[in-house]
Design a protein around this nucleic acid. Structure first.
Length: 264
DNA sequence: CTCAGTGTTCAGTG
DNA sequence: TCACTGAACACTGA
């Protein structure tokens, strides 16, 4: 579920509700799969008493800078989420990191299926996976010329390229499908097969979709009715908003929803 | 009971 | 060395 728009929405939530606050109490779950590099108790000890001074995001990767200089890095994986609760509000289940802040808010990181990470390091930007990420389309932008040069030499499918975080940071499965649908490109097309106008259309659609999704706080019920998103879920999704048939193929290692009648 | 599905990493292949 | 593919990971819900 979490792709760039959701993570950006959570970053904004953290920005307005946690920056400037002191972490007064910490509870880290005893989960060495989530806390894979620092022991959970070590994370708790190092977080307590620290002030959150900034929030950052590249692609789907999120972190908060502390006044100690360390970065608290959170990856949401497939089922992670970030919540800010009122003091009396009931907490959700599967909480992995629980922070009581000096402003009275309680910020929790939840992850049901345990594919996700919490790390505490001096500078997350200089180590993988963050250091190898491609440009974030919203933060750094994507230069058309760079994109064309990049795609010209790619032998793999465009779907696979869109999912490569070292090309575009933040595009996941449904956004890749949405971009290809709106750009009228088959997911099976290779990078080398794209014309300059194809690449331009691809870039325009990518930017439009990301900007719109972030503008509505990643609330999918507010996505435009014409998007494939609303029709692609469930094994027996049959047709898009125009009544054209949706086909499901395995492309780039993932289930890909597309409309052959509209995508060449 | 089986299996798809989320994102990333890693092993294997070319 | 690099580009690419496919499996593995943990778990829920269909």
């Amino acid at each position: 579920m979490p792709e760039l728009p959701e993570v950006e929405t959570w970053r904004q939530l953290a920005e307005r509700s946690a920056v400037g606050a002191v972490i007064e109490q910490v509870h880290s779950a005893d989960d060495r799969k989530i806390f894979d590099q620092n022991h959970p108790s070590s994370v708790s000890r190092k977080l307590k008493g620290r002030t959150i001074v900034a929030t950052h995001r590249i692609g789907k990767h999120f972190w908060m800078k502390l006044d100690s200089g360390d970065d608290l890095y959170i990856h949401f994986g497939m089922t992670g989420s970030l919540h800010v609760l009122d003091p009396e509000e009931e907490a959700p289940s599967h909480i992995k990191l629980d922070l009581m802040l000096s402003n009275g808010s309680r910020m929790v990181y939840r992850n049901m299926r345990r594919i996700g990470k919490v790390r505490l390091v001096p500078d997350i930007t200089v180590i993988p996976p963050v250091s190898t990420l491609g440009p974030d389309p919203l933060e750094q932008g994507i230069a058309l010329k760079d994109l064309q040069e990049c795609l010209m030499v790619r032998k793999g499918t465009i779907k696979g390229i869109l999912l490569d975080q070292n090309v575009f940071a933040g595009v996941g499965n449904w956004i890749a499908d949405e971009v290809l649908y709106q750009a009228k490109l088959s997911p099976h097309r290779t990078g080398t097969s794209l014309s300059p106008s194809d690449v331009k259309r691809l870039r325009t659609c990518l930017m439009r979709i990301l900007n719109k999704a972030v503008a509505v706080d990643a609330d999918s019920s507010k996505f435009p009715k014409t998007w494939l998103f609303h029709h692609r879920w469930g094994k027996k999704a049959e047709q898009d908003a125009r009544g054209d048939a949706i086909q499901f193929d395995q492309v780039g290692g993932r289930t890909t929803a597309w409309v052959p009648a509209r995508q060449l």
